[in-house]
Design a protein around this nucleic acid. Sequence first.
DNA 1: TTCTTTTATCGTATATTTGCGATATTAGAT
DNA 2: ATCTAATATCGCAAATATACGATAAAAGAA
Lengths: 110, 110
Amino acid sequence: MAFHKKEEFSAKDQSLAAFAKAISHPARIAILTVLARKNECICGEIVEILPLAQSTVSQHLKELKNAGLINGTVDGPRSCYCINWKSFEKFNAEFGSLFTKLKEVNAKCC
Amino acid sequence: MAFHKKEEFSAKDQSLAAFAKAISHPARIAILTVLARKNECICGEIVEILPLAQSTVSQHLKELKNAGLINGTVDGPRSCYCINWKSFEKFNAEFGSLFTKLKEVNAKCC
DNA sequence: TTCTTTTATCGTATATTTGCGATATTAGAT
DNA sequence: ATCTAATATCGCAAATATACGATAAAAGAA
């Protein structure tokens, strides 16, 4: 069954995989780009830019937030999101070190 | 419906998302690590190391291959895999530039 | 209070992913 | 030709992801 096999892998691999999953949909990469580009932490503006329904965008935002890649604060009837640079940088380093590690341990093959 | 909305995003975002998806499962990260570490391009050895059935590992290998992250060559009754460093490096750069780009266009918020 | 705007959440449909066992398939060994 | 070992693929079940419309919630404006 499609059961929690994921948990049998190392915490590091799980963490990196979770981060990768967060950015494994073009809509979420587009959202991150919009968040970085706009001066303010938009919300409904994202809906206008993306070819997706409001509820769908809200769901993607939730996933990015759960992954820790963005922060969200409530401002009246609207929500203000922005990139969590700290954790984003952490994941960036984590990913970079995967590549570095792979290269280091490599010993030519095929 | 869960329809091809993905195709409405930029080619670059789609490409990066596809790469992220390829490494969005700890088993696949573990496979990449094994492939990099072992001197030879293992195959069934991976099955022994991972807590997964042979058919499942074979499927993960297929996905990594489809994503272009590994190469596979048939050697008698067995298959020999190794990391495709060229495309892996390409994706690494692509990912790094996402982070760089986000930082560049950013203009403080929240 | 009632209306409006903005966003989150619920319910639902469909698609994809994950995983396994069983069954091909391939090629060397007997 | 038959057996064996290593892999890939098929068929299936269960879980998760994607997407939408409808509805709830929150707070300012009328």
